[in-house]
Structures are given as C-alpha cells and as structure tokens.
Nucleic acid binder design. Structure first.
Lengths: 394, 394
DNA sequence: TATAATTAATTCGGTACCGAATTAACTACG
DNA sequence: CGTAGTTAATTCGGTACCGAATTAATTATA
C-alpha cells in the first residue's frame, strides 16, 4: 500500500509579486538622484523593458516624475532623467524601549522629517499608547494623508510574517500580536521587526547596501546581536529568531551567562555586563564614565576595553571566516566606547581572519536614541513602498 | 555638475528563468514516488495552474508519465498519479582526489547506476584524463545517449558561475577553468562545485532537505568545513569561497595553524592534525587504528577523542545560536570515529546551545570513498535537469 | 537640407508564475 | 437513471520579468 508519509506543506515559496525591480529602482533613485531609464537599467542589471514598465507604474502612483530632457551627449536621443518625488509618501517609525518610544517620520528618499521622544509603559495597554503616539505625529505633519505605513522595532524575537512579538525580555512581552492590533486601531499597514533586522534592512536600502551586497551588522547594546546580509537580503533563520551572536562561547570556564551557559561573549561585551565588570566599578558606572577613565593611556579601564575589543574581534573573525563576508558595520550604544575598543577589536580580527578575506571594511555608525525608530521607518518604507506591500504576510 | 559616482553594476538579479517549480516538482517526485498534480501543488505550495503547466512540459520532455487513474477517494474525479521516468536522463559525477577519481552514474531519481575508481594525477593534463574517464563510463552504460550533464566536486574554493577552480590546495590547482575546458572536450554541460556544497545540494534534493528547509552540513575531513542551507538553498558567500568552519578560533594561545593563526578548530579536528596529535602517535596512525585504541574505555585515546568531540560541539553550538539552525548533518572521513567523538560532541553542544533551539537533530552520514562523486552527480542533476540549465552561469 | 549615424525609450512576443472561473470525472441518492 | 454533490484538473486573464525589434529624438555630414 502506498501512501504519502510525513506530508509537509511548505509556505508558498517566492511569490511572483516580489517586485524586485520596483524596489531596486526606488532605492537607486533615493540614493543617486535623477537618472534616465537607461541608466537605471544598466545600474541595476534590469532589462530596459522592465524599467520602462515599472517607471510608468511609479509615475501613475506619483512616486516619480520626468524632468525635462537634458541635451544629448554628442549624438542621439537625449536622456530623460527620472526624479523621485520625496514627499509622495511618508512612513512613521517607532523605536520601543522599556520607558519611552521614539517616533520619526521619514520621506520616500529616507530623509527624516520629524523626531520625538514620548514616555511609554509596555505593561499598560501598549496598543492604545502607541496608536495615540502615531496619531499625534500624523496631525503634526504637513501632509497627514500621505502616511502609508508604520514600522516598529523591538528587541527580541519577532515573527515578521504575523507581526507578532514572540518574546521580548526587555519589554516583558510574549506572543503579542502587536502588529495586527495596531493595524486595526490605526487602519494603516503596520510592520514589526527585530531592531537589528530593521537596521539591517535600512542599511540595504539607504546605507552601505547600495555598494555592498553582503555585510555583517554587529549590534553592541544590551545584547550582542548580528544581522547577516547576504545578496541584499537579511538572513532569517528558520524560527524567525534573531541571530544570537552574543551567545557564542568565548571561554568554556568563563562566568555564567544569563542564558545558563558559561563564558558567552555576552558575559564580556553585553552593555550591563561590560559596565559591571569594569575595573573599580561603582553602581553608577556609565558609558561616559568608563570612556573618560579609559582615555588615560595605560589605565586599567583602557586595557580592560582593549581586552573586550579583542574578544569581540576574535569572535567576529570566526564568523567572517565562516560566512566569507568581510564588510562590517558596527552599531549600538556601546559604540560610544569605540575609540577604546577599536585597537583590540582590530587586533582580534587580524589574529583570526584568514588572509584570503582581507582587507576588511569596518564602518562604525554613531548611535543615537533615534536609531531604533529610524531603522523601523526604513524597514516600513522598504516593505510598504518599495515592495508595495500592504500586509506583512511573506 | 552632476555625475554618477561609484557606478556599480550588479550582476543580473534573479532571472525569471529560475524555474523554481520545475525543480521542486522533480525533486518531490524523486523522493515520494507517484503523486497527483493536486498533491504536488499542495505539498509544494504552488498554484495548481503552475503544476499543470510544468507537468505538461516535463511530460513533453519524457521526464514524467501519467499512471492510470486510481479510484476516487469517496467522491469526485479521481487523481491521476504522475510518475518520474527515472532513466529519462543520466548524469555522471566525478569526485576528484589527489590520487584518484571516483566516477558514478546517477539516474533522475537519484539512484546510482554504476560506480568506479580510477587512478588520477592532477598535475598531468587533467582535462584529458577526466574526459577519458567520462567517455569510458558513458560507453559502459546501457543508454549512453541519455547522459545530460557531468558534475565535478573538488575541495577548495570554486566559482560555480564560471566553473573555475579558484584555488585547491590538495590538488595544487589555481584559477583553472576546468568546467569550460571539459565542457568543450565532451560537448556536455559540466558543473564544478566545492565538495561540501555539492553534498549540501544533494541533501536538499534527495536527502534531509525534503523535510527540512534549513540545516547545517558539518564536513569532517582533511579540512573542517560547513555547508549552510537556508530556505532550501546553499549559503554562498560573496567571494564564492567555501564556508571555513575550521578556522574559527578555539584557543587564542593554541598551536599554530597552517593558516598562520593560532588555535583554529582545524588544529584539533582536521584529519591530519587529529591523527598527529593523538596519544602515542606513530607515523602510520590511521583512523581505524585510533578507533580501535579508543574502544578501550578510559584509554588516553578515548578521552582524547572525547575532548576533540567537545571542541567540535562547542564551536558548532555557537554557529547554531548565531544562525538559529538546529538540524545538523555530520559527514566526512572522520565520522569513522563518530562513536568515540559523539559523547563529547553532544556535551559540547549542550553546553553552548541556547535552550531556545533545543531539541537538536543530528544525523550522521556514513562516509564512503564515493561520497564526493555522488554529491557531484546530485549537484549536476539539480542544475542540469531540475533547474534545466545547460550552462553554469547563475 | 536631406540623410546617415547614434543613442534612448518603447513596443512586441515569450516565459513563469498566480488566483478565479470553468470543465472533467467521478459517487451518492431520490 | 438522472441529477446533485464533490473533487481534480484545466483554462483564462493578469503581473513581472526578459530579449529582440522598432520607434523616437537628436547630431554629424554629404
């Protein structure tokens, strides 16, 4: 008797409506300004026919416009530059932390219109609070009707398809379908994402991703995370879990980590742990504090941060070897200490990365309170406008 | 003055001719036997229309045939099972080592028809030697005309797009366009791949990949390598370099590695290094030898392998945490020692993997001399038949 | 001033997908 | 026996891409 064993249905693979060219065209115009259709095609490796068709669509939506043709270069028909209309759409990004929400408005070209910080309590009707924040932000804008989507970034594991927060330790949320609830309250598409993945997505559209198809985003904050970008898309593991760089093992005999294991990178480089283990710690040791002390050459703080940087560098080196990706962005609160971490970090990389992968490119992104919200806005822009999705579903 | 800065042309993104459904349909039929069109659609998450169209194409090519309809289940029109025609096509796989080549013939359904080992010298007109090997294999077959492609696996870095061996230390090849040369000599499509990637590709089509979209393939041989499979495709770093798991750092103060750095995993778990560092080594220590000695409980060899296994497990644990992939296949020559490595390996994993990712699934693939060739054949089948490519180009 | 050369952009025909509507081939029941 | 119900498979209309052929707009030249 023949029967199908272990029947497993896959989620629909790549839908045809992935609309890769639309995404690329908008992204390119946002960064490089007006370009002719032919230039767009050449830059993106698309067929000229595709560009013609997609630009026609975008023009009908009001996203782009033709500029008067310039003079032809020597001979032949002149190029007609196509220009982005930046304020054709606005997205609102929310960066959520345990005590406050940062709100930003972002235009089509990635420019930040307005930014604000408001108090927030994740335990008390969060959806109502967030809806109010978004509504007020919309009222303050010149063209409130142009708001097309909302993006939210939280630290923790998020299922982006259902816009559900699977678990967030810092916000004390678990299996919370934030996206759907807020979407109902606002009647706007809402996209929820892990904070690092949001930053990575934004880097793809508006940052380093313009010049590199592959890079690693090292996030140094309360946790030590990593976004892996391969072929212009964020590596997304099976469980939708974020990539836990902080729990690579550094020392089998090291101190116990919150995860229950020993000697994780997190124990040395996590923000809280890093401050607590600093030489001569006081209960109120801050990043600025530590930075000031480390500025004295040869001081205990200086060599402490040197060691920490080296550990980070060595761990990252292994990942660089493993994945063959040697373009690195460093971000997060702890980059405030970067000048003191840097030497050790680079040494650690040198000691571990195969010569094959040199030279490495390291870019440090200065951290501000608004980064989470900006990442969220960039992610929402990517999803709602660039990919033209109105629903998170795959 | 406005001009385009840093103009970078991308290689064409995802061509429309990627033909994902064809691939999936053939793969599914190869593993699950006859299925109706509707079942295929449901299993693969494809539209029924797509399956109808693709099955029609495949039938025209002779790759599949309809079986007489069974009786309907209860009510309604009965399903018409579609069956693979296994000998509609044959591929030949070559596994190249410094002294010999293993040749296998493989049918559409992944079955091995014939297998042979012939002496080989990589320094002396390798293309001519390989062409002769393939030609003889074809003559020995019942339906020589059915041969549609040749697959080759070599250890080292390979650019699969150009079928060029970038560098292979074991074969002493560098920038060798093996694929194109052999393709000309044979007048058959030739696909060249890194050995581990070939095995991973084969696992996707005919192995664990049928039930898991994501897994890690740990290759324990002369080198320590890893194939990362995410969403049913092999992770392929920017340089086309293979994923160098062996050069993750285990101990900053460890012995020097061939790569120039210190304390790489390779130093402890690479085949040569593992044998050389075993207790009471003799110049002729072999795997069997070491295995026999480790079979004595409490012997130095036993605890030595326990430690080695633990190191492997700990390193792998970090990767599991990083990528969130907890399905693991272990393969390679050194799996001959698996019964002695296993305890330490599992302990190492337990100590490092976040509880979040448990339970882990570990599958050990017994290693034979022919694995490389079988992987190559499977990879070629995947490319030539399943993806219907006649040229390696992306 | 016609016309040739040149480059830009569009149209046209073709493929791979999708969802919805339709047709095909059964069983069950009055 | 015929018709209603049910499930399988196909067709149909639509979108996103491609390459090749065509049309459009300009400069150079006889």
């Amino acid at each position: 008797m023949l029967h199908i064993s272990n029947t497993r249905q896959r989620p629909r693979p790549t839908p045809a409506s992935e609309v890769i060219s639309r995404a690329e065209i908008l992204g390119l115009l946002a960064e490089r300004g007006p370009l002719s259709r032919g230039e767009i095609a050449k830059q993106l490796g698309l067929g000229a026919a595709t560009v013609t068709a997609q630009v026609r669509n975008l023009m009908a939506e009001g996203m782009v416009r033709d500029l008067p043709a310039g003079q032809s270069a020597g001979a032949g028909r002149p190029k007609v530059p196509v220009q982005l209309v930046p304020d054709a759409a606005v997205v609102i990004g929310l960066g959520i932390t345990p005590r406050s929400v940062v709100v930003v408005s972002m235009l089509l070209d990635g420019e930040i219109l307005a930014s604000d910080v408001v108090p927030f309590n994740p335990d008390k009707e969060p959806v109502g609070q967030l809806a109010a924040v978004v509504t007020r932000q919309m009222q303050d804008m010149a063209h409130p009707g142009r708001t097309v989507a909302v993006g939210i970034s939280v630290s923790g594991a998020v299922d982006e398809n259902s816009s559900t927060v699977i678990i967030s330790a810092t916000l004390n949320w678990e299996n919370f379908d934030l996206g759907q609830q807020l979407q109902q309250a606002l009647d706007l598409p809402v996209f929820v994402s892990n904070d690092l993945f949001a930053l990575a997505t934004r880097e793809i559209s508006f940052g380093l991703g313009r010049r590199h198809d592959d890079f690693l985003l090292l996030g140094l904050g309360p946790g030590v995370g990593m976004g892996i970008v391969n072929r212009r898309s964020v590596f997304y593991g099976p469980g939708g879990a974020s990539t836990e760089f902080g729990h690579m093992s550094v020392d089998p005999e090291g101190p116990r980590c919150v995860c229950g294991n020993r000697g994780c990178l997190q124990v040395y480089a996590g923000l809280k742990e890093l401050l607590a283990a600093a030489p001569d710690p006081t209960p109120e040791t801050t990043l600025d504090d530590l930075s000031a002390r480390a500025s004295v050459p040869g001081s205990p703080a200086s060599s402490y941060l040197d060691r920490t940087g080296r550990m980070l560098g060595r761990s990252l080196g292994g990942t660089v070897n493993l994945l063959g990706i040697s373009t690195i962005i460093v971000t997060g609160e702890t980059t405030a200490l970067w000048e003191h971490l840097r030497n050790g970090f680079e040494q650690g990389l040198q000691e571990t990365v195969l010569r094959f992968h040199h030279p490495l490119t390291i870019t440090v992104r200065e951290w501000t309170e608004a980064e989470g919200a900006i990442g969220a806005a960039g992610m929402a822009l990517h999803n709602a406008v660039v990919l033209n999705r109105s629903d998170p579903a795959s």
